[in-house]
Amino acid sequence: MSTEWKLFADLAEHAGDRHVTVEASAGDTVGDALEQLLDGRPELAERVLEDGELRSQVNVLRNGTNVLVEEDGLETELGDGDELALFPPVSGG
């Protein structure tokens, strides 16, 4: 099964595309899919991770739901056809 990541703002620039498909297996988690996304994309990993952990301001959505708030975080299990989205820290004023 494959899962598609949608990347927003500068994350798409760092990844080289706004849509990236990764392969997932039954029982894989959002964290597994994130690891695949970042593999071979050091600039993206640098923007999303800090000391090997997800930056606190980064939002990860699965089918429109923030997994860090409403589900089991990066341990959330993937389902067939899930759509994942990664949003960078947003600053403003």
Results as ranks from 00 to 15, higher is better:
residue 78 L to Q: 03
residue 46 E to Y: 01
residue 49 L to E: 06
residue 55 R to T: 01
residue 56 S to G: 14
residue 77 E to D: 05
residue 31 G to P: 12
residue 29 T to R: 14
residue 51 D to A: 07
residue 37 L to K: 05
residue 57 Q to R: 14
residue 18 R to H: 11
residue 80 D to H: 11
residue 31 G to C: 05
residue 16 G to S: 06
residue 41 R to I: 09
residue 53 E to H: 08
residue 13 E to H: 09
residue 73 G to Q: 10
residue 39 D to N: 15
residue 11 L to N: 02
residue 46 E to I: 00
residue 29 T to Q: 07
residue 20 V to S: 01
residue 20 V to A: 01
residue 55 R to D: 05
residue 11 L to S: 08
residue 16 G to L: 11
residue 48 V to H: 02
residue 22 V to H: 09
residue 34 L to K: 06
residue 26 A to M: 06
residue 42 P to S: 12
residue 71 E to L: 14
residue 73 G to D: 04
residue 28 D to M: 12
residue 18 R to V: 11
residue 38 L to H: 06
residue 74 L to T: 03
residue 24 A to W: 00
residue 66 N to W: 01
residue 39 D to M: 09
residue 14 H to Y: 13
residue 15 A to F: 10
residue 76 T to D: 09
residue 57 Q to C: 04
residue 80 D to F: 09
residue 70 E to W: 14
residue 55 R to G: 07
residue 59 N to R: 15
residue 41 R to Y: 08
residue 32 D to C: 14
residue 64 G to F: 11
residue 23 E to T: 15
residue 70 E to R: 14
residue 19 H to I: 11
residue 57 Q to Y: 15
residue 51 D to V: 01
residue 66 N to Y: 03
residue 44 L to K: 01
residue 61 L to N: 02
residue 26 A to H: 00
residue 77 E to R: 14
residue 21 T to G: 03
residue 26 A to Q: 07
residue 52 G to E: 07
residue 14 H to V: 06
residue 67 V to G: 04
residue 28 D to Y: 06
residue 62 R to C: 13
residue 34 L to H: 04
residue 33 A to C: 06
residue 36 Q to P: 00
residue 50 E to G: 13
residue 17 D to N: 13
residue 71 E to S: 06
residue 64 G to S: 05
residue 18 R to D: 11
residue 15 A to K: 03
residue 63 N to V: 05
